[in-house]
Design a protein around this nucleic acid. Structure first.
Lengths: 188, 188
DNA sequence: GTCTATACCTTGATAGAC
DNA sequence: GTCTATCAAGGTATAGAC
């Protein structure tokens, strides 16, 4: 692994653990084993480095999302699989964590974060519409709002789990969202 | 207003606007019009000041919550009123905002934050159980998980709104939660 | 109680040798 | 490309006058 890669990997880890503000160039240098020279040779500033790191994190998370959402199972089941794919409840979402950091004040840093959330909302909306047309869920479901509620269940669940220092809070929220999905599928 | 109160008010405002890490003692001194002397005369450190400020913020938010939840209207309606009581979508929740700050690493600072979320979860659970017993909602509703989903809808909605720089994301999430409440009330 | 002056550390970035 | 040395600015806290 080149120094450049080592710096990027260390940054991704530290942004997840501590956020942007609380991570210093020194932290990154120590974790990556690179010196000042390598750091500022490869990246113009801490912000530019963080932006590149977040691009990679979001690309990676979107690919993981799509891997989970792939397949022929009913949409409700595949969405449910994404809801339960939550480890590290107390560490939080690698992307959502950045939102309340100074990161969001910087357009370049906010861009990948926005991309992630818009992707999830759009894809859930599409999946729910497809399920409604296929008769898997009730036809009168508001797919956009339901999609937003599912994304919020995950993000809000992470916030609650961190506040309460208990992974169970996240589980309650995501299980609540799975109950909702089952209710939508219910024949009446 | 005494200098002590002015310092506390300025701190509450800045914690909401910028968070704990990004707020410096100087910021607080400038906003409150107090000097170094007053600051460290009344408060031992920035952390102690922030903890006291968060105690007040949480007490205030819980009282507002209880004011909205009071009355004889059906629980579903009162919960719905709390869901739509969201101004300042882009500023975020005064309490939830702190969760991803260094604040949560400090037990004293996390305590009021935890209190707030546990209060909301517990009260929604109670209200939903009451509604189930009164026959206002279906008897088979999992009240704990539904309560958690409602809290998460708000917190997650704020995160999405901030990420997308659009208050509409929060509205979609909270409206999704209101749809869920209506569905629970539906007679089958 | 409140002020100004100051101390000390960390941060983010640059300089220049190798 | 990588290192060490260094810098200016700002962060948090203390000292001491009034």
């Amino acid at each position: 692994m080149s120094k450049r890669e080592a710096i990027l990997e260390a940054t991704k880890a530290l942004l997840w653990e501590k956020g942007f503000e609380a991570t210093s160039p020194r932290d990154i240098q120590q974790r990556s084993g690179a010196g000042q020279g390598s750091f500022y040779h490869h990246f113009r500033s801490k912000r530019e480095l963080a932006a590149e790191a977040m691009d990679e994190v979001v690309e990676d998370r979107i690919q993981r999302f799509e891997a989970i959402m792939a397949g022929d199972a009913p949409a409700v089941e595949r969405i449910g699989n994404f809801l339960v794919d939550r480890s590290d409840a107390l560490a939080g979402c690698r992307v959502g964590r950045m939102v309340w950091d100074a990161a969001v004040g910087d357009e370049r840093l906010r861009r990948p974060v926005e991309r992630y959330f818009r992707h999830l909302e759009r894809r859930f909306t599409e999946e729910l519409r497809g399920a409604a047309e296929a008769g898997e869920i009730r036809a009168d479901v508001d797919c956009e709002r339901t999609a937003a509620l599912i994304v919020a269940a995950i993000q809000g669940g992470y916030t609650m789990a961190r506040a309460e220092q208990s992974p169970e809070a996240l589980n309650r929220a995501t299980e609540g969202a799975r109950m909702l999905l089952r209710a939508l599928a219910k024949q009446e």
